[in-house]
Design a protein around this nucleic acid. Structure first.
Length: 206
DNA sequence: TCGAAGATGATG
DNA sequence: ATCATCTTCGAG
């Protein structure tokens, strides 16, 4: 396999909004014995600090949230609704709980059980992403700067600011005023004219 | 094509 | 009881 060159901790150890925007266009890499996958990151959300009522760490340091207080560049993976996993990357300095949720990707390269698939597939939704990439809580607390199993790398493509859409975050209406913060960032697909219905996304069965 | 409902278990 | 979700099903 190709040599991993993961983004270093200095990338994640910054203001979460910057990290979130800078993750757009970077490549999410999943490397396991069953699966190698490279996917361009197209949709992210920022969760920032104890003040942010939408952030899991708003209730303070608990067994579940302690990972967000730890070193940046570490994966935070949790189970939601009893059946789906969500992938986040921890950001900011030690003891400041924050992370970026990966919400959309564009798969450019997949090898599953030795079978190579190379047509581009868009996957919308954090639960679908984790299912497609075989990500579950065994990867929680993984240090992604090591470049093993799961990491993000820069493949040299830049993203013009004009292609970044800024939106409120999804599914957090309980969070009051925090629900209105424009902390979701999407890459619009410039060459596609018309609307892509997210419900049409299909992920192959495993 | 749409909205509503149900699945399912960790969490605090 | 709630939830940073997704799929199925039935109405139109």
């Amino acid at each position: 396999m190709m040599k991993a060159k993961p983004l270093p901790r200095t990338f994640y150890d910054r203001a979460t909004l910057k990290v979130a925007k800078d993750l757009l266009g970077k490549y999410l890499i999943r490397d396991s014995s069953q699966l190698f996958c490279a996917a361009r990151i197209t949709d992210v959300e920022a969760y920032i600090g104890q003040e942010d009522r939408a952030c899991h760490a708003s209730k303070g340091r608990t067994p579940r949230t302690e990972v967000m207080f730890g070193p940046s560049g570490v994966a935070y993976v949790y189970l939601i609704y009893g059946m789906y996993h969500c992938l986040n990357f921890v950001t900011e300095r030690l003891d400041y709980p924050a992370a970026v949720l990966i919400r959309g990707i564009e798969v450019t390269q997949v090898t599953r059980n030795g079978v190579v698939l190379s047509h581009t597939t868009r996957i919308d939704g954090p639960g679908r992403i984790c299912r497609f990439l075989s990500i579950d809580r065994t990867l929680n607390k993984l240090d992604t700067t090591l470049g093993q199993s799961l990491w993000v790398e820069d493949r040299g493509n830049s993203v013009p600011k004009t292609q970044i859409q800024t939106l409120p975050r999804i599914g957090i209406t309980y969070a009051g005023e925090w629900a209105e913060k424009p902390w979701r960032f999407c890459l619009s697909a410039p060459t596609l004219s018309g609307h892509v219905n997210p419900k049409r996304t299909r992920t192959p069965a495993r």
